[in-house]
């Protein structure tokens, strides 16, 4: 059913861009209609989500009666979901659309919205090999404008590097070490050892600092970006993610690929999962 709704909406867009006179559709026209329907930039996702542009991507003036019109937004929202792999029910989809287009408390998105971030899957050269490394990026205000910054990262070699043991089996500096001028540090601080064993109980490694150090030292060298996704917790009680769908057809570009209704605990669990902190 959700696919039918999406299909009908797709047809709406399709019809909206047709000239009134009947004509034979050439290959070029077909391609251009598909390109027009595609959500080509995240910026366009925001504009369609908010109902701030027409079907040809032209911005409405704020005093235009179509600007942020909730009927227009509902039509746009139906084409902003990935219709091929949508794993959520029609009722969930409808509830979300009703929530963000409600007359009393509508939700609009922009680059400056709170609680969203980008996950950037990259490849770096590390110790002679190309290895995957995930960067978590956020928009922040700085100087006269805004900038994207790295807020965190996930890197497999770091995760196992500080696997600190606790309790009876861990390595330690015995409690009388001070009487020997801590001469046993010599045996603790060794290459390929477990120096993290000799830290405070609540020690948490700061991977971002480590990453920056290794980039500065030339140990980690950027190679390429493989994939980008965006994750939104901007709508209270909801989570959705955006992926870029590069495929033939009218349902392409930046689309909502996941949609979940979440409570506060589920939000924390999901954030842990997305940030690879489990």
């Amino acid at each position: 059913m959700i696919k039918q709704v999406l299909l009908i909406s797709g047809i709406f867009i399709f019809l909206a861009i047709q000239p009134l006179s009947a004509q034979i559709i050439t290959d070029n026209q077909r391609v251009e209609e598909q390109l027009l329907a595609s959500t080509k930039q995240l910026n366009q996702f925001f504009s369609r989500f908010n109902g701030e542009e027409d079907t040809r991507g032209r911005e409405f003036e704020p005093d235009d009666r179509q600007y942020r019109n909730s009927r227009l937004r509902k039509r746009y929202l139906s084409i902003l979901f990935d219709e091929e792999n949508a794993g959520f029910s029609e009722s969930l989809f409808q509830e979300f659309v009703d929530r963000v287009t409600s007359d009393a408390d509508p939700v609009f998105l922009s680059l400056r919205s709170d609680n969203w971030f980008a996950v950037v899957n990259t490849t770096f050269a590390y110790k002679g090999k190309s290895v995957p490394l995930t960067l978590y990026m956020q928009i922040q205000q700085e100087g006269l404008g805004y900038e994207w910054v790295i807020s965190d990262l996930s890197f497999e070699p770091y995760k196992s590097l500080f696997n600190k043991q606790r309790g009876q089996t861990k390595e330690f500096l015995h409690p009388m070490s001070h009487e020997l001028d801590f001469m046993n540090l010599r045996k603790a601080m060794v290459k390929n050892g477990s120096p993290e064993s000799y830290t405070l109980a609540d020690f948490k490694p700061d991977f971002l600092t480590l990453f920056l150090y290794e980039v500065k030292m030339g140990h980690l060298v950027f190679e390429t970006v493989n994939r980008v996704n965006f994750h939104f917790f901007t709508v209270d009680g909801w989570y959705f993610s955006l992926s870029n769908f590069n495929r033939p057809g009218y349902n392409t570009g930046w689309l909502i690929s996941d949609l979940l209704k979440i409570n506060a605990q589920q939000k924390q669990d999901l954030l842990k999962l997305l940030y690879d902190k489990n």
Binding site: K40, Q41, N43, Q44, S47, G57, E59, L111, E142, G143, L144, G145, Y146, E147
Partner: peptide, 10 residues
């Protein structure tokens, strides 16, 4: 398609 213009720190 032309995006909105955003101001950068400089």
């Amino acid at each position: 398609y032309i995006s909105k213009l955003e101001r950068q720190p400089d």
